[in-house]
Design a protein around this nucleic acid. Sequence first.
DNA 1: TATAGAATTGACGTAAACGTAAAAGGTGCG
DNA 2: CGCACCTTTTACGTTTACGTCAATTCTATA
Lengths: 154, 154
Amino acid sequence: MKLVSPGEAAANTNDIPVEAGEEFVRIGEMAKKYGVTLRTLRFYEDKGLLNPHRDGSTRLYTRRDKARLKLILLGRKVGFSLRDVKQMMDLYDPTGTNTKQLRLALDKSEKQLARLQKQRALIDDAINELSTSMTAVRQMLVERTAAPQASAAG
Amino acid sequence: MKLVSPGEAAANTNDIPVEAGEEFVRIGEMAKKYGVTLRTLRFYEDKGLLNPHRDGSTRLYTRRDKARLKLILLGRKVGFSLRDVKQMMDLYDPTGTNTKQLRLALDKSEKQLARLQKQRALIDDAINELSTSMTAVRQMLVERTAAPQASAAG
DNA sequence: TATAGAATTGACGTAAACGTAAAAGGTGCG
DNA sequence: CGCACCTTTTACGTTTACGTCAATTCTATA
């Protein structure tokens, strides 16, 4: 198999033909490239989100896997569970229009958007409450820290 | 022990004196009053956040416990962990100025505020990314759904 | 060939805040 | 008396996305 040697990218001292620029990457490089751990890549595979080729027991990731990983990371970023991401990706059919997939994605996205907006509202609430109580605490602190010698007014 | 009978609040058919309006409430009422479950109250106690009196094995909550619970719920609302809440509450000393407690609370609050602001930024990012990709998906859908008979412009 | 650096599978651990039985004791009421 | 209802303790289960060994194997390189 043709591998991209770590660090450089064109050693190609191996035997298998290059075949239309199909580049295989091992798990270490893949992880570095996308800022995830090896564990994460294996975990995603275990969950059926990735399906790299194998050279013996060694995982080899292609362009396709990279695209899928990008989608996973995007999904994760916008707050989808891996389960959701998988559901959506499982509907992908390279031979069709993927209307069903797109509709599902849109549906899930709308719900997720609503969740995110709720979350933001909650966080805004929290920020306000926290700010308020911080003000109160600061006030108590100045009252208790202020030189108490001239405090008795009666 | 004087109990507030469920539903009503002044039966007082028991023996122990009323003693300055100290009202004891059992776990069920306490839970209803603050919108938490029995499990939650026991859990908080197990974690050292609450310390209700006992009548035999029955928990009896006083005004003090209610105040503590309110603090816990406020802490939870602004995103503190129960561990943090406990740390802060443990510093409470009814005989002192509680300067240390207030300082700790302020310190933790500042950090929590920063976390909340970061979270909000992340959520805003997520909302933006999600909105963007939803637009793209909608676009793909119209392209694929639009009657394809007159699509060839060149 | 020795050693270091990848890679593999397997499997338990983690965090947080409870949920959810299960089995049993106490209480008031008709 | 029996039933409903409240309460108790004990203890395992849940959720999500990995972290962290452990033991082993493979490969490349000096």
